[in-house]
């Protein structure tokens, strides 16, 4: 898990430019699935056929990560940018970022700003060390996207780095693909694109797959750091069975199935009520005539920062829980 996660989180993959992540995952799983293809949106869809008696299940984890898109290059070579997905000015301030071609830069801001709390992305810029517009243009073009440059670090069971949202979910799906041996269900593992900009890959892949059940894997916030916003989720206390977020209210049948499978196998789990934020199941459950859907969430501190932190036990228990759900009948 550690090696896989370090590999996946180190790859460049902002929304719309997920190819490196897709290729890496394809390499990891191709020998464990019956079919694999990439659709026109760039979603990677891998199928494990069931024995024909079960349900058609769509599993989703998103490959994309948030990023900074260059909107202007000024005469002195400073890059102005806009956000791809939910980028907080405070999370990117004085971070090192990297472009697809490996060019790195530092994010800073107009220091004449009197109150730092008024910091907005339009008062910020990326400095790639270029002395002029001409020099900068040799390295970066308008429309290029930078992501955090923050290789994964770890201590004991804790992993931290950028893009745990949602490469951690991708890693859980990859390990689940390897772990699931006999399933009565037809399993569509979808590594989705463009979640961070509105669940867009999940929407189209759910439409084309037309599943009976949808389950997505994504990170959720925790409430276990000093004076954090209240949230009854702790890092390391187990994967979370989502009850609701702002994109969906999990179908009671799917939620209860997750709880039942966790309890009968003694897998630790938590219940998640997320007040803001959404994930791929939000799009999946409203596809066509409706797809009963749920979410297994991976507790994660500092979501959307360069140092998202997850726990190894939560990841491994998420694999166990998901495997157990998939290997059994789904009502």
């Amino acid at each position: 898990m550690k090696t896989l996660l370090a590999h996946l989180t180190g790859l460049y993959g902002p929304s719309g430019k997920e190819e490196a992540v897709r290729q890496a995952i394809q390499q990891e799983i191709k020998d464990y699935v019956d079919e694999i293809h990439e659709d026109v949106m760039g979603n990677l869809i891998a199928v494990k056929k069931g024995n024909g008696s079960g349900r058609k299940v769509m599993l989703a984890a998103h490959m994309d990560q948030i990023g900074l898109i260059v909107t202007n290059i000024d005469e002195n070579g400073f890059l102005r940018f806009s956000n791809i997905g939910g980028v907080s000015p405070f999370n990117v301030l004085h971070r090192r970022v990297v472009f697809q071609n490996g060019v790195t830069g530092a994010v800073s801001y107009e220091t004449e700003l009197e109150e730092i709390k008024n910091l907005k992305l339009n008062k910020m810029y990326i400095d790639i060390g270029a002395a002029s517009r001409e020099e900068a243009k040799k390295l970066v073009q308008i429309g290029d996207i930078a992501v955090y440059h923050a290789p994964m670090a770890d201590r004991e069971n804790r992993f931290f780095g950028c893009a745990m949202d949602d490469r951690a979910g991708c890693a859980v799906l990859v390990e689940t693909i390897k772990a699931v041996k006999n399933s009565p269900n037809e399993l569509f593992f979808v590594f989705t694109v463009q979640e961070e900009v509105g669940l867009r890959g999940a929407r189209t892949s759910a439409y084309s797959i037309n599943p009976d059940i949808g389950i997505s894997l994504d990170v959720t916030i925790t409430g276990d750091t000093p004076k954090s916003r209240p949230m009854a989720i702790n890092l390391g206390d187990g994967p979370a069975v989502k009850v609701k977020d702002s994109s969906l209210i999990c179908h009671p049948m799917v939620k209860n199935l997750m709880i039942q499978r966790a309890e009968e196998a003694g897998i630790p789990y938590q219940l998640e009520v997320l007040e803001a934020g959404g994930t791929d199941s939000g799009a999946i459950h409203l596809s066509r005539e409706g797809v009963p859907s749920g979410v297994i969430s991976i507790p994660c501190r500092y979501v959307h920062s360069a140092h998202e932190m997850v726990d190894k036990n939560d990841l491994e228990n998420a694999v166990k829980l998901l495997t157990r759900i998939l290997e059994n009948e789904i009502a």
Partner: peptide, 14 residues
Amino acid sequence: MVRDIDDKGFIRFT
């Protein structure tokens, strides 16, 4: 909806 239960048994909600 119940969001948490505090250590006195009061229910926090959203």
